[in-house]
């Protein structure tokens, strides 16, 4: 149980990075298909915002899941 916070942070980081990668991949396609509307700044700024939001979401979800797993 002592390592719960560490596992939670690692799981949250992993989840957020996955979501950011998803955003990055999709954003790259947009940049390629519509370069007039989408510029790299949009993609990078979006990645930061998506990371912040997904960290908040995953940091709220993971501790409960990890606690349940560790209790088993």
């Amino acid at each position: 149980m002592e390592r719960k916070p560490l596992y939670s942070v690692l799981a949250s980081l992993a989840t957020s990075i996955c979501i950011v990668i998803l955003f990055y991949v999709l954003a790259l396609q947009k940049l390629g298909s519509n370069p007039e509307a989408y510029i790299p700044v949009d993609m990078y700024a979006g990645m930061v915002y998506v990371f912040v939001l997904s960290m908040i979401v995953s940091a709220s979800i993971w501790p409960g899941i990890i606690e349940k797993i560790m209790k088993r």
């Binding site: 979501i19 955003f23 999709l26 954003a27 947009k30 949009d42 979006g46 915002y49 998506v50 939001l53 997904s54 908040i56 979401v57 709220s60 979800i61």
Partner: peptide, 16 residues
Amino acid sequence: LAVHVLALLTFFFWFF
């Protein structure tokens, strides 16, 4: 939590 999920989905929807 739900609001942050909605905010994230909204961002994805309007961006992409």
